[in-house]
C-alpha cells in the first residue's frame, strides 16, 4: 500500500470513527439525561382524550418530570386507557387518591399530565395500580380536595399568583376543551357581569330606600327585578366559582413562570386582576345590603317569603364564594364546584 493510499485509509477511518463515537456518546448522554437507564414503575389511568399526548409525554410534578407516558389505547367504553411509568426515585409520591391533571400547551400542542399529590394521606399505592385523572368525576373531586389541602396562603397570594396564572395561561385546564383565551374571556365576562349586577343592585336599593313606604306596587316590581337580578348573579357566581377552581389547579404546580406572556396579556394588572378584585369586594359589600333589603321585604310582605327563598339560596352561594375568596379559596372549603347553571329558571312574581 503506497503512502497516499495509507493516508486515505487513515483519514477516512478517523473521519468515520469520530462521527460514530460522537453519535454513540450523544445517544448515551441523552438516554441518560432522559432516565432511560432508571428503573421505572408502571401505573395506569384513563383519559377522555389524548389530544397533544404522545407515548413520551411527561408526567410533571411541581414542574419536574417524574415519569412518562408509555402507551395508551381506546377501550370499549370509549375511554383511553393510559399506561405510564414513574421513575423509581419518585415512587414515594405515588400516594392513594393523587390525581393526574391533563394540560395541553396551546402553541406547541404538547400535552403533559400534572401529578397532583394527595397530601392528606401517606399510603402508597402498589405498582400497576390505577391512578385517578381529572377527566373523571371522581378525579375532579379528588383534584379539588388535593388542591384545597395544598396551600394556606391568604387572599393576597391569590392576586400574586394571578401574575403566574397569566404567564401559565398556555396550560389549558379547561375540561370542556376550551383554550386559555376562553378562560380570559370568561374571567372578563364574570368581572363585567359582577359590575353590572352590583350597579343594578345599588339602583334597586336606592329606589327601595326612597320609595319603600309610598307604594306597594313598587315593592312588587322591585322584587320582580330582584329575582331576575338574583338569577343572573347565580349564573355569574357559577362561572366565577368554576373559573376560580380552574385557577387554583393552574396556580398550584408552576414555580417558574415565563414573564413575557403575562406582560403581553395583562402588563399592569389593570385589565383583569384589578377589576376582578374590585368587583369582588363591591359584591361583598352589596350583599350585606341585599340581606337588609330581604329583611325589609319580609317584614312588609311575608307572603313573598316563599318566592324569595330561591333567590336567598343564590345569595347564600354568592356569599359563600366571596367569603371563600376573601379568606382564601385554597383552604377552609371556600369554594365548592358549582352545578351547571340552567338559564331561564328565573323566579317570576305574578
Amino acid at each position: 500500500m503506497d503512502q497516499k493510499t495509507k493516508r486515505t485509509y487513515r483519514v477516512t477511518g478517523f473521519f468515520v470513527l469520530v462521527a460514530s463515537i460522537s453519535l454513540l456518546l450523544l445517544v448515551i448522554f441523552i438516554a441518560f439525561k432522559q432516565n432511560a437507564f432508571t428503573k421505572k414503575i408502571t401505573y395506569y389511568t384513563t383519559l377522555d382524550n389524548v389530544v397533544g399526548i404522545t407515548t413520551s409525554s411527561p408526567i410533571i410534578f411541581k414542574g419536574y418530570e417524574i415519569g412518562r407516558i408509555k402507551n395508551y389505547k381506546l377501550n370499549k367504553n370509549n375511554e383511553i386507557e393510559v399506561e405510564f411509568i414513574v421513575f423509581q426515585e419518585f415512587a414515594h409520591l405515588m400516594i392513594e387518591d393523587s390525581v393526574l391533571d391533563k394540560n395541553v400547551h396551546p402553541i406547541t400542542g404538547r400535552g403533559t399530565l400534572e401529578f397532583v399529590m394527595n397530601r392528606s394521606s401517606d399510603k402508597l399505592i402498589a405498582e400497576k395500580s390505577f391512578v385517578l385523572s381529572s377527566d373523571s368525576n371522581q378525579g375532579r373531586k379528588a383534584l379539588q380536595a388535593n388542591q384545597e389541602h395544598g396551600s394556606s396562603e391568604p387572599i393576597s397570594s391569590l392576586i400574586n399568583k394571578l401574575e403566574r396564572f397569566v404567564s401559565n395561561l398556555g396550560r389549558d385546564d379547561n375540561y370542556d376543551e376550551g383554550s386559555f383565551f376562553r378562560m380570559i374571556y370568561n374571567m372578563a365576562e364574570v368581572a363585567e357581569g359582577l359590575d353590572k349586577g352590583i350597579e343594578n343592585l345599588n339602583r334597586i336599593l336606592i329606589s327601595l330606600q326612597t320609595e319603600e313606604t309610598k307604594d306597594d306596587g313598587v315593592l312588587f316590581r322591585t322584587l320582580n327585578n330582584f329575582a331576575d337580578l338574583a338569577e343572573e348573579m347565580k349564573i355569574t357566581n357559577s362561572l366565577l366559582a368554576n373559573n376560580l377552581v380552574k385557577l387554583n389547579s393552574l396556580l398550584e404546580n408552576y414555580e417558574h413562570p415565563e414573564g413575557l406572556l403575562s406582560k403581553m396579556l395583562d402588563p399592569t394588572g389593570m385589565d383583569i386582576i384589578q377589576p376582578l378584585s374590585e368587583s369582588l369586594l363591591l359584591l361583598q359589600k352589596s350583599l350585606r345590603e341585599i340581606s337588609e333589603l330581604m329583611e325589609f321585604a319580609n317584614d312588609h310582605a311575608p307572603e313573598l317569603l316563599l318566592l324569595m327563598s330561591e333567590s336567598k339560596k343564590t345569595l347564600n352561594e354568592i356569599q359563600k364564594t366571596v367569603e371563600g375568596i376573601n379568606s382564601n379559596p385554597l383552604i377552609r372549603g371556600g369554594i365548592t364546584k358549582p352545578d351547571t347553571p340552567v338559564p331561564g329558571s328565573k323566579i317570576r312574581v305574578e
Binding site: V27, I30, A31, K33, Q34, A36
Partner: peptide
C-alpha cells in the same frame, strides 16, 4: 437542547 432532543430525533435523522 437535550431537554427537547430525544434519542428518536437523533436516530431518525441518521
Amino acid at each position: 437542547l437535550i431537554g427537547e432532543l430525544s434519542v428518536g430525533d437523533l436516530l431518525i435523522s441518521v
